[in-house]
Amino acid sequence: MNVHESALPWTSDLRVRLDELLDEHRAMLHDSLDGLTEEEARRSLVPSRTTLLGLVKHVTGRGPRALWAIYAHMLRELAQHCGHADILREQVLAGRE
């Protein structure tokens, strides 16, 4: 057995876990729109003009990921966007009061 053959199970498991993490963060980001009107989802509340809907659209439609560097980048980016979505959602909901 060569080095590449012994690494295959670990690599396969890692790829599955990375896919799970990406899907989990995409779902978290999508869930930030729950209960909001379209106007609220499109509301720009920060100087960068970022909106909740814009964040969700930004991460949808990404094609197949072939390189591990892309996985790491996507996971980091999605995690950051989830934090941004939390802040924007808090502002939208605070505006309801």
Rank of each mutant, 00 (worst) to 15 (best):
Leu21Asn: 03
Leu21His: 06
Leu21Val: 06
Leu22Thr: 02
Asp23Ala: 14
Asp23Glu: 14
Glu24Ile: 00
Glu24Cys: 01
Glu24Lys: 11
Glu24Gln: 13
Glu24Pro: 00
Glu24Thr: 12
His25Arg: 14
His25Gln: 13
His25Thr: 02
His25Trp: 08
Arg26His: 05
Ala27Met: 11
Ala27Ile: 08
Ala27Asn: 10
Met28Trp: 10
Met28Gln: 13
Leu29Glu: 02
Leu29Tyr: 01
His30Tyr: 10
Asp31Ala: 15
Ser32Trp: 00
Ser32Glu: 01
Leu33Met: 11
Leu33Ser: 06
Leu33Trp: 01
Asp34Thr: 05
Asp34Lys: 08
Asp34Asn: 13
Asp34Leu: 07
Gly35Trp: 03
Gly35Phe: 04
Gly35Asp: 05
Leu36Trp: 07
Leu36Ser: 06
Thr37Val: 03
Glu38Met: 09
Glu39Ser: 13
Glu40Arg: 04
Ala41Tyr: 01
Ala41His: 05
Ala41Arg: 04
Ala41Met: 05
Arg43Met: 09
Arg43His: 08
Arg43Lys: 13
Ser44Leu: 08
Ser44Lys: 15
Ser44Asn: 07
Ser44Trp: 00
Leu45Gln: 05
Val46Arg: 11
Val46Trp: 01
Val46Ile: 10
Val46Tyr: 00
Val46Asn: 03
Pro47Met: 09
Pro47Ser: 07
Pro47Phe: 11
Pro47Leu: 10
Ser48Cys: 06
Ser48Pro: 06
Ser48Ala: 14
Arg49Lys: 15
Arg49Gly: 09
Arg49Cys: 12
Thr50Ile: 06
Thr50Asn: 10
Thr51Cys: 07
Leu52Pro: 04
Leu52Gly: 05
Leu52Asn: 05
Gly54Glu: 08
Leu55Glu: 02
Val56Glu: 05
Lys57Arg: 15
His58Arg: 15
His58Pro: 00
Thr60Pro: 00
Gly61Trp: 11
Gly61Ser: 10
Gly61Thr: 05
Arg62His: 10
Arg62Phe: 10
Arg62Ala: 09
Pro64Ile: 06
Pro64Phe: 08
Pro64Trp: 09
Arg65Phe: 11
Arg65Pro: 00
Arg65Leu: 15
Ala66His: 13
Ala66Pro: 01
Leu67Pro: 00
Leu67Ser: 13
Trp68Ser: 08
Trp68Tyr: 15
Trp68His: 10
Trp68Asp: 12
Ala69Gly: 15
Ala69Gln: 14
Ala69Cys: 07
Ala69Asp: 14
Ile70Gln: 14
Ile70Thr: 09
Ile70His: 14
Ala72Met: 12
His73Asp: 14
Arg76Glu: 12
Glu77Arg: 12
Leu78Glu: 01
Leu78Trp: 04
Gln80Glu: 13
Gln80Thr: 09
Gln80Lys: 09
His81Leu: 12
His81Cys: 04
Cys82Tyr: 04
Gly83Asp: 12
Gly83Lys: 11
His84Asp: 15
His84Trp: 13
Ala85Ile: 06
Ile87Cys: 00
Ile87Arg: 07
Ile87Leu: 13
Leu88Val: 02
